[in-house]
């Protein structure tokens, strides 16, 4: 048993599953990047297009501020800060996990089965599917807005506040990644309904670009406790900007984002496993 060279080495190297998944992700993403490079002009056009399309959200905010001086009691730099955090975090997730909506199509045309007979984790393969560098367009415009927001907001920077900025980007990105994975898991149930996840992912980043004071109280409750999007930027940003916390959350909540992100990941992982199990028992 296991004398063949191929399986032998796999067991030696395949120490950690996460390492194995990361390696597979890199390999497949690399293939997609090379594929997209075969159409060079298209690639350039789509990067620019992505930058413009995603930038429209901020243009809308600028248009609003051409008419008013504050929105929900927040100034333009403060909203730019919120926008930059939300859009960058989402951009990171979109770049790494953003193509999972093709899963339903892969199940319908049967090509998902090909992923299942390969010796690497399926989730890594699905996440890297259709990996597209054009999504750097979104991150670019988001980082630009964030940079301007950081410079323009009136904040007495402390060590804790400085630290919170990268923490928000990373935990926020992870929370959005978990949403993408949960959305993919949902496609195991409804193969045509990939668009549902847009409501949570794209919808999520859009709503976080505006201050929590804009939304109804029940709505804010929902996106804090039910779907904890508030921890992407609202709560920690309230600490940085010294604004009242949404729903009167305690002070420490500003630092809870990594924990929330970890819980989201665990839940999304469970959902994915359940979805994959149901696919493998029903074949659809």
């Amino acid at each position: 048993m296991g004398e063949t060279s191929a399986s032998g080495t796999a067991e030696t190297f395949g120490g950690s599953r996460a390492g194995e998944a990361l390696r597979a992700y890199r390999l497949i993403a690399g293939m997609w990047i090379r594929s997209s490079m075969t159409y060079r002009t298209s690639f350039v056009v789509t990067v620019l297009g992505n930058l413009l399309v995603t930038g429209l959200d901020f243009v809308a905010i600028l248009l609003m501020f051409s008419q008013v001086d504050s929105l929900g009691g927040w100034s333009l730099p403060e909203i730019a800060f919120l926008y930059g955090l939300s859009a960058t975090a989402f951009g990171l997730a979109d770049l790494t996990f953003g193509s999972m909506d093709v899963l339903g199509g892969r199940m319908r045309d049967g090509s998902f089965d090909i992923l299942l007979v390969r010796p690497v984790p399926v989730l890594a393969q699905v996440a890297a599917d259709h990996f597209a560098l054009r999504r750097l367009g979104r991150i670019t415009q988001a980082v630009l807005v964030l940079g301007w927001g950081l410079l323009a907001v009136d904040v007495d920077w402390t060590a804790a506040k400085v630290l919170l900025v990268p923490m928000m980007l990373v935990s926020g990105g992870v929370i959005f990644c978990a949403l993408f994975v949960a959305g993919a898991a949902f496609q195991f149930l409804a193969q045509d309904a990939a668009e549902v996840q847009n409501a949570f992912t794209y919808g999520g980043t859009t709503l976080l670009q505006y201050p929590p004071t804009v939304f109804g109280k029940d709505f804010v409750r929902g996106v804090t406790f039910l779907l904890p999007l508030a921890f992407v930027n609202w709560v920690p940003a309230a600490y940085v900007l010294e604004r009242p916390y949404p729903l009167g959350l305690p002070q420490w909540a500003a630092f809870a984002s990594p924990l929330v992100a970890a819980v989201c990941c665990a839940l999304a992982g469970l959902a994915w496993r359940a979805g994959l199990r149901s696919y493998r028992s029903t074949g659809s």
Partner: peptide, 19 residues
């Protein structure tokens, strides 16, 4: 799925417009 997404986006936009 489209109905759901349009509804969610509608709610988000309504709040921002109201503000």
């Amino acid at each position: 799925a489209g109905v759901f997404t349009n509804t969610v986006f509608g709610v988000i936009l309504v709040y921002t417009y109201l503000a």
